[in-house]
Design a protein around this nucleic acid. Structure first.
Lengths: 152, 152
DNA sequence: GCATTATGGTTTCAAATGATACTGGATTAT
DNA sequence: ATAATCCAGTATCATTTGAAACCATAATGC
């Protein structure tokens, strides 16, 4: 008897994608926790703020697709550790602008190379062209998923 | 001032991988919840059991990398809905063998095509060759992440 | 201007997740 | 055989996560 719709989980791409992504996230989360006592949302904030000094939480959420609650909590945690600071936003009294402190910048300068090194190790097997193509595929998958999702 | 280590989050692959994967998972989880009232771990169990009748929870965990707690909970939920059933394992009294019930098989026969259709929609932009290459890259990334992780 | 509605951010609550401890059956050593 | 250890699966607990309520300020309609 042949099954009419063979759904082999091992070859089902959404499943594979999820498994591999979770594994990678886990490896990275463990490393960051151990090296810098940073959770993933926290180091993402650091990275984004380092890139875009003075950004608001709202914009961080839009950029990273992190929930605003997650962003808020990460921000508070980083402020407590004086890795970032808030200054009033002259354009909007509800929000504030986020900046790395000196300490935060020093930390960032340690985190960034470690992050890139870890990425390099995980993606070492591929040449530049493959990496570019992989990144492009991710972008197109993202686009398609967004469209598939909004149809509901 | 030039930043010595440009870590552009948008081009940082582990980050991109995580964002896209979460998005895809989310779209799929929403669809399954709406169509079949199944959570992701639950339909994974259904899919695995449909593939490997009589498998134990332990083996499901190994196959899918799901935590044994997750597997246990999903199994109990499916048993409550009489979508799967347990029979004693003659080889080992601690575990049991899992089977789809008739109802479960009927459900599976609805789920599988929907799953494949959803996958097709999300990955529609690619030709077969690209999909194969994408899957191979995932496999190699998985392998590298495992190695990077165990060094710790 | 004042009322209504929208929005940035926080808090609160409920659900999901996974580490740890536990239970009962299996394996190994003596 | 029986003690010691190990392992499948479950229960308990702490942590993480996001939805919804909430607060304060901003924008819009009248």
């Amino acid at each position: 008897m042949t099954r009419p719709n063979a759904l082999k989980l091992e070859t089902f791409l959404p499943y594979r994608l999820s498994v591999v992504s979770n594994l990678v996230s886990d490896v990275i989360a463990t490393a960051y926790e151990r090296l810098f006592a940073l959770k993933i949302p926290e180091w993402r904030l650091i990275a984004v703020i380092a890139e875009s000094d003075g950004i608001t939480q709202q914009n961080i959420g839009a950029k990273t697709r992190m929930d605003k609650v997650t962003v808020s909590r990460a921000a508070i945690a980083l402020i407590d550790r004086t890795l970032i600071e808030r200054r009033p936003n002259p354009d909007d009294g509800r929000s504030h602008r986020l900046y790395l402190t000196a300490t935060g910048r020093i930390l960032y300068e340690q985190v960034a190379p470690k992050a890139l090194e870890l990425e390099a190790r995980i993606f070492a097997a591929f040449d530049t062209e493959q990496l570019v193509s992989f990144g492009q595929m991710l972008a197109r998958i993202e686009q398609a998923a967004l469209e598939a999702g909004e149809v509901s």
